[in-house]
Design a protein around this nucleic acid. Structure first.
Lengths: 229, 229
DNA sequence: CAGGTTAATATGTCTATACATAATAGCCGC
DNA sequence: GCGGCTATTATGTATAGACATATTAACCTG
């Protein structure tokens, strides 16, 4: 076969065969050694291509059992979690920021439960603006034990969002996307009607076993989070 | 150095150095050959580890310029795009489905523009239920030219969602997540108040250059799309 | 025939080596 | 100093060969 030469080309060829049903969902494909011979490349090259496809969800691979085409081509969209200021700048607007609250306080039960902490936490609220118009409300609870130096930080000048990204990197977390009606307070801050549909992002992040922060972002009406598949 | 033995261990070691600031954001890390010597492994092993970290966003790599720690560890959350029935079953509920509309019609301007088509399209509306309670409204426009056999499909029995996943795989698409107030019709279907905040997912998918379908999913109040980072 | 042991097999990974490629640094002529 | 050529360098990729490991199929044995 006058076939592919690099692993990307092998990947493309395999993908083409999956897409045009020469290798239908659920079917087994030839083993790496055979494919390598057919394509005229080394097995390592085929391996690289098939591993990439497996990672992307197109193939299921198991030792000894071989490789088969995934039953449900589970497509994944990747959302990047940007710095809010960078997101606003990227959309061509002038970012702004206003701190509303900065205090130690007892978190509400859902927040305490999400973080697995009981004591008081640093509570921060802020509004981010784009071209002077309200863009998103940031409501955040920070575990001070996980963020050394946070008591000295000046959150009037720099948002907690940015401070934490630079100073307290996290290892993992979870995120929930939802819709919620604007409270009276939120409506006033976002210049919209109470009860308006707001897009919300709620994140909890950890450094190893130590919880760092819980944050809820409430975007103004009209906002959409976009990405490619 | 009595170091790592496999590429995963190399990856873990590098990640540890990034996280504890031995290699701070923006700094250059040693080249592959040096790391290989230090770790006592082959360069290919280091390369495998660093490529994985670069793909995950921890490192920026450029030929000749070397490898440096990413300035903003741009974290990515991957949303899986599941079959709705599978999503409901996965949550432990009994899935149901009711077809509301199936007809050829002229799409509204935003839909026609998103697909880049002008003629009439197949319009489908349906409600998916979980334990007999309304879960999500599916409003879909399909390009019949991109879905051969769709005129014979029985969408009273199988949802268009599933039919398309099995019969018209897509190569790429885009997705927008947002919040919207429930229309009167939506409120009736979802058993909620008009104006309630609904979480919406709008997708456009393509097979190569050919548009396949535009779909908007409107989830009932209380729904949250969750994922890990 | 049940249950456990062994052999076969496909993927997973590491190695050493080689060459390709992108991007830069430095040199040179003017 | 400027423009362009060239050498250098780090990553990107391919290769053959080897061994590891998970899993299953085949085979024994009681």
């Amino acid at each position: 076969m006058s076939g592919p030469k690099g692993w990307q080309e092998v990947q493309d060829e395999v993908l083409a065969r999956i897409r045009d049903r020469r290798w239908p969902p659920g079917s087994a494909i030839p083993n790496e050694a055979d494919l390598a011979r057919d394509f005229g490349v080394a097995r390592a090259t085929v391996n690289r291509a098939l591993q990439a496809l497996a990672e992307a969800g197109w193939l299921d691979r198991r030792r000894r059992a071989g490789t088969r085409v995934a039953l449900h081509p589970v497509r994944r969209a990747t959302l990047s979690i940007p710095i809010i200021r960078a997101e606003i700048e990227g959309a061509g607007h002038v970012p702004g920021y206003r701190l509303l609250r900065q205090e130690m306080a007892q978190p509400p039960a859902p927040v305490a439960a999400a973080l697995g902490l009981t004591g008081p936490l640093l509570h921060l609220s802020a509004v981010h603006t784009a071209d002077k118009r309200p863009f998103v409300i940031e409501d955040r609870w920070v575990n001070p034990a996980a963020a050394p130096g946070i008591r000295e930080a000046d959150f009037a000048a720099q948002s907690a969002n940015e401070w934490l990204i630079v100073n307290a990197p996290f290892s993992h977390g979870d995120i929930a996307l939802a819709a919620a009606p604007a409270t009276v307070e939120e409506a006033a801050l976002l210049a919209c009607a109470p009860g308006a549909a707001l897009f919300t992002v709620t994140r909890t992040t950890w450094a190893g076993a130590q919880p760092i922060t819980w944050v809820r972002l409430a975007y103004g009406p009209g906002y959409a989070m976009k990405t490619a598949l």
